[in-house]
Amino acid sequence: MWETLRKHRHPYLFIAPYLILFLVFQLVPTIATVYYSFTEWNGLRPPRWIGWRNYQLMMNDYMFSNAIQNTFRYWIVGAIGIMGLSLLIAVLLNSKVLRSKQFFKTSTFLPYVCASVAMGLIFRMLFEEHAGLVNEVIVSLGGSRIPWLTTSAYAWIPVVILFIWRLTPWFTMIILSGLLNISDEYYEAATVDGASGWQQFLRITLPLLNNILFFCFITITVDAWRLFNESHILSGPGTSNTSLFELMYTSAFTNFKLGYGSALGVVLIVILLGISLIQFMVRRRTGEI
């Protein structure tokens, strides 16, 4: 035991800071949260053990089922939108015919630089029903005003647009760095073989980006389930576009139901762990890990 540790002390030492920080700042709070999820607690009086009652309430809570559905939607729509757009932009930016590459690279990255809190405020104005620019454009194109943030049916759309708008550049950059690492030789060989640009993309680019795309998907998943600022600022009627994370936050910090908030947090963790487990099982089965 000691012998192995000593022999491999360097990698262990290199990883140790992470493990220590994880233990103190993540594991301990998470375990405490699991404990609190079985209590009724307003943060002022001592917590009172109530067993599974918080979880039972969740089953009857329409706000909870709204939040789950909304977050699921943000995740799926967001993942498709972000992955698709960022692949497209990265490929365009990587194009050999492109002039002033630096300008395009910098300006397409701009949305990620902008704080989501600030952008939320701006999107809220842009999507305003009577005076927002989006509706103004729709009207001038001959359409009719859409009550974006004032009806449940539409309220999720501005949120997901902001989510995609802000995060796409991040993934564009990561995918682009992957594209840069693909040697030109592959493409030259393919061109000689007479493969079209689209075929090259499918047969060379995508497979070689596999690891990076996987990383992107995991990151989007985590980001989508942690979505908070966007839906908090662009709030629609009731909980029509509330995310799970937001519901957890309001339960714990606005309503002082720290027990119920903790229970929602536990559900959030379980969902994320479940998703990642499935992802890994799929990848293992297809022999990618």
């Binding site: 990883i15 992470y18 994880f22 103190v24 700042f25 993540q26 301990v28 709070p29 998470t30 405490a32 949260t33 609190y36 943060g43 995991i218 985590v222 389930w225 942690r226 908070f228 994370f245 957890m248 936050y249 714990a252 720290l258 903790s262 947090g265 536990v266 959030l268 963790i269 994320l272 762990l273 998703i275 990642s276 890994f280």
Partner: peptide, 23 residues
């Protein structure tokens, strides 16, 4: 350990905000 690190990516630290404050 590596799988463990990946798994921890899934835990949002914000979930434990209250105990975190105490720490």
């Amino acid at each position: 350990l590596f799988y463990f690190v990946i798994a921890t990516m899934m835990i949002s630290p914000e979930v434990g905000a209250v105990p975190m404050f105490v720490i």
